[in-house]
Deep mutational scan, measured.
Amino acid sequence: TRVETATETAWISLVTALHLVLGLSAVLGLLLLRWQFPAHYRRLRHALW
Rank of each mutant, 00 (worst) to 15 (best):
T1W: 09
T1R: 10
T1L: 14
T1H: 12
T1N: 06
T1Q: 13
R2N: 10
R2C: 10
R2Q: 13
V3I: 13
V3D: 05
V3E: 03
V3K: 06
V3A: 05
V3Y: 03
V3T: 06
V3R: 04
E4Q: 12
E4M: 14
E4D: 10
E4S: 13
E4F: 13
E4Y: 13
E4C: 08
E4K: 11
E4A: 14
T5Q: 01
T5F: 01
T5W: 00
T5I: 05
T5P: 04
T5V: 04
T5D: 04
T5K: 01
A6K: 09
A6I: 00
A6M: 11
A6Y: 00
A6N: 06
T7V: 12
T7N: 13
T7F: 11
T7D: 08
T7I: 11
T7G: 08
T7C: 02
E8R: 02
E8D: 10
E8W: 01
E8F: 03
E8M: 00
E8S: 02
T9L: 13
T9E: 09
T9D: 00
T9H: 08
T9F: 09
T9Y: 07
A10V: 07
A10I: 07
A10R: 06
W11P: 05
W11V: 08
W11D: 00
W11Q: 00
I12R: 04
I12A: 04
I12W: 07
I12Y: 07
I12C: 04
I12S: 06
I12H: 03
I12E: 04
S13Q: 06
S13K: 02
S13H: 06
S13P: 03
S13F: 14
S13N: 05
S13W: 14
S13R: 05
L14R: 01
L14A: 02
L14G: 04
L14N: 04
L14S: 02
L14Y: 02
L14K: 02
L14D: 05
V15Q: 02
V15H: 02
V15G: 04
T16Y: 05
T16I: 13
T16K: 02
T16Q: 04
T16S: 08
T16H: 05
T16E: 03
T16P: 07
T16C: 09
A17T: 07
A17N: 01
A17I: 09
A17P: 00
A17G: 07
A17W: 06
A17E: 06
A17M: 10
A17C: 10
L18H: 07
L18C: 03
L18W: 11
L18I: 04
L18E: 02
L18S: 01
L18Q: 05
H19K: 06
H19V: 01
H19A: 05
H19S: 04
L20F: 11
L20M: 10
L20E: 04
L20Y: 02
L20Q: 05
L20G: 06
L20D: 02
L20A: 08
V21M: 09
V21K: 01
V21Y: 04
V21C: 12
L22V: 14
L22M: 12
L22R: 04
L22I: 14
G23H: 00
G23L: 14
G23P: 02
G23E: 06
G23D: 05
L24H: 05
L24G: 02
L24A: 06
L24I: 09
S25N: 12
S25T: 13
S25A: 13
S25Q: 06
S25D: 02
S25I: 04
S25K: 06
A26M: 11
A26E: 03
A26D: 06
A26P: 01
A26N: 02
V27N: 03
V27D: 03
V27Y: 10
V27T: 10
V27E: 06
V27W: 09
V27P: 01
V27A: 09
L28Y: 07
L28V: 02
L28W: 01
G29I: 12
G29P: 05
G29S: 13
G29F: 12
G29V: 14
G29D: 08
G29C: 14
L30M: 11
L30K: 02
L30C: 14
L30I: 12
L31K: 09
L31P: 03
L31D: 06
L31I: 11
L31W: 12
L31S: 11
L31E: 08
L32E: 04
L32H: 06
L32K: 00
L32M: 15
L32S: 08
L32W: 01
L32Q: 07
L32N: 03
L33N: 09
L33V: 10
L33A: 11
L33D: 00
L33C: 12
L33E: 10
R34G: 06
R34S: 08
R34Q: 01
R34P: 01
R34N: 05
R34F: 04
R34D: 07
R34I: 01
W35A: 15
W35F: 15
W35Y: 15
W35M: 15
W35S: 15
W35I: 15
W35G: 15
W35K: 15
W35R: 15
Q36I: 15
Q36P: 14
Q36L: 10
Q36H: 15
F37C: 10
F37M: 09
F37E: 05
F37H: 00
F37R: 02
F37L: 09
F37N: 10
P38F: 08
P38T: 10
P38S: 15
P38D: 15
A39L: 13
A39P: 14
A39T: 14
H40I: 07
H40T: 08
H40G: 13
H40L: 09
H40Q: 13
H40V: 08
H40D: 05
Y41N: 10
Y41M: 12
Y41F: 15
Y41L: 06
Y41G: 11
Y41H: 10
R42M: 07
R42D: 15
R42T: 15
R42A: 11
R42N: 09
R42H: 10
R43N: 09
R43E: 08
R43C: 15
R43P: 10
R43L: 10
R43K: 12
R43Q: 08
R43Y: 03
R43S: 10
R43T: 12
L44N: 08
L44E: 00
L44I: 13
L44P: 01
L44C: 12
L44Q: 00
L44D: 02
R45S: 00
R45L: 11
R45M: 15
R45Q: 07
R45A: 10
R45K: 12
R45N: 03
R45I: 01
H46D: 08
H46K: 06
H46S: 09
H46N: 14
H46E: 10
H46I: 00
H46F: 06
A47E: 00
A47T: 02
A47P: 09
A47N: 11
A47Y: 09
A47R: 14
L48N: 07
L48D: 08
L48H: 05
L48T: 09
L48F: 08
L48G: 01
L48S: 08
W49C: 07
W49F: 00
W49R: 01
W49V: 00
W49P: 00
W49E: 00
W49T: 00
